[in-house]
Computed example of a mutant assay.
Amino acid sequence: MESLVRSCYKRKSGYSFAKKAGDIAREYGIGRIARLASNENPASPSPAALKAAEEALRTVNRYPDENANVLMHALRAHYRHEHFVTGVGMDGVIETILRTLVDPGEKVAISTPTFSFYGLAAMGQGADVVTVPREADFSVDPALFIRQAKDAKVAILCSPNNPTGNATGTDAVRQILEGIEGVLFLDNAYVEFADIDYIPLMKKYENLVLGRTFSKVYSLAGLRVGYAFTPRWLPPWYNRAGTPFAVNSVSMAAAAAALADNDHAERYITHVRQWRKRFTDEIQYPVLPSDANFVMIDVAPHTSDEMVGELARRGVVVRSCRSFEGLPDHYIRANVGEDWENEQFIAGINAV
């Protein structure tokens, strides 16, 4: 029966997950593991979000609101923008955007190295996937990107980029928007940690979609809530293509409440910026400039997996960057965690 599986999934492996903290604890007999591999917020969700989730849990005998009105109203009030779509995490938004816009055989252009799920989702849609390499410093060359993505149905750019951490400036994004024929999906999963704002571009460009998530700054990774700013024309078609009742009642209630708790978000943003500087100043290996809640570190002469193994033995879980297409095999990625986790990480990596 396995012959029925589509050939694209036989040719290419799926998403690569980091090793679980519990597995490392058992393997090395370590009681407390610093979990810095998944770009998660180490803080619990906002009390308001927890209360809203608990109240919504009492209603889960019923299907969620198909229009996600409680979340849509919260997004519109918070951002003063009218048109949004939602999904099961950023991944769900990406999949549905591609399902809405891309026919099999049409081109999807992706700036690399970057988050691997873009390519997997495009492959699942039957797209012709074209990768556009970044410069040696991991910046985006707008002219090169336009040449490769000009006739793409969808072009995908992550800013701040995962795993490199650097953001692409608004002038470069504007140049790309004016030079391509299709839609630019700009993944802004980490934008709250950067000093850059792409939302004003929505007023001018009908081919821009800004993807966001509640997984990072709002501490809701386990509830899987993604959303996107869109032009006026897109939501009716997105909703037609989307999975019914995709975002559950508990998730949308928690997300709406979290959005209103600015203090919770700002505390984590401040925490991230303080520790990004300490990582840069105190780690003995080159730490690349970052606008996200993580840093990428050049650990040469070690390979990515060698350093991940050394840190695991010291009670720290970080992400090997070996699986990121186009990235040399001597980088790791580590997010900002709790104070003790960050201290354990600095001590551990400086001992290797």
Score class of each variant (00 low, 15 high):
residue 46 S to F: 06
residue 127 A to Q: 10
residue 83 H to D: 15
residue 341 E to N: 09
residue 78 H to V: 00
residue 309 G to Y: 05
residue 44 S to I: 09
residue 194 A to G: 12
residue 183 V to D: 02
residue 99 R to S: 08
residue 191 V to T: 13
residue 110 I to P: 03
residue 122 A to E: 02
residue 298 D to C: 06
residue 106 E to P: 01
residue 112 T to L: 11
residue 106 E to S: 07
residue 193 F to P: 03
residue 177 L to R: 10
residue 65 D to G: 09
residue 247 V to F: 10
residue 163 P to I: 03
residue 332 I to V: 15
residue 159 S to V: 07
residue 186 L to V: 08
residue 105 G to Y: 08
residue 99 R to A: 09
residue 91 D to S: 06
residue 241 A to Q: 07
residue 61 N to C: 11
residue 321 C to R: 03
residue 164 T to L: 09
residue 139 S to Q: 10
residue 34 A to S: 13
residue 109 A to T: 12
residue 259 L to I: 08
residue 20 K to M: 11
residue 86 T to Y: 07
residue 160 P to I: 07
residue 96 T to Y: 01
residue 323 S to H: 15
residue 58 R to Y: 11
residue 27 E to K: 14
residue 251 S to G: 15
residue 55 E to K: 14
residue 140 V to Y: 04
residue 300 A to M: 02
residue 238 Y to N: 07
residue 214 F to K: 01
residue 72 M to K: 09
residue 40 E to L: 14
residue 102 V to Y: 04
residue 137 D to V: 06
residue 330 H to E: 07
residue 342 N to D: 13
residue 248 N to M: 09
residue 47 P to L: 10
residue 268 Y to G: 00
residue 327 L to C: 10
residue 319 R to L: 13
residue 197 D to S: 12
residue 190 Y to T: 05
residue 125 Q to R: 15
residue 155 A to S: 15
residue 312 A to L: 09
residue 185 F to T: 02
residue 318 V to R: 05
residue 263 D to K: 15
residue 303 T to M: 06
residue 262 N to I: 11
residue 2 E to S: 12
residue 127 A to R: 08
residue 204 K to G: 04
residue 177 L to M: 12
residue 107 K to F: 06
residue 161 N to S: 11
residue 95 E to P: 00
residue 113 P to C: 12
residue 251 S to F: 02
residue 224 R to I: 00
residue 296 M to K: 00
residue 344 Q to T: 11
residue 27 E to L: 09
residue 67 N to V: 05
residue 231 P to E: 04
residue 166 N to V: 12
residue 95 E to D: 12
residue 232 R to D: 14
residue 214 F to Q: 01
residue 87 G to K: 04
residue 9 Y to M: 05
residue 326 G to Q: 05
residue 221 A to Y: 08
residue 319 R to A: 14
residue 62 R to L: 15
residue 318 V to G: 07
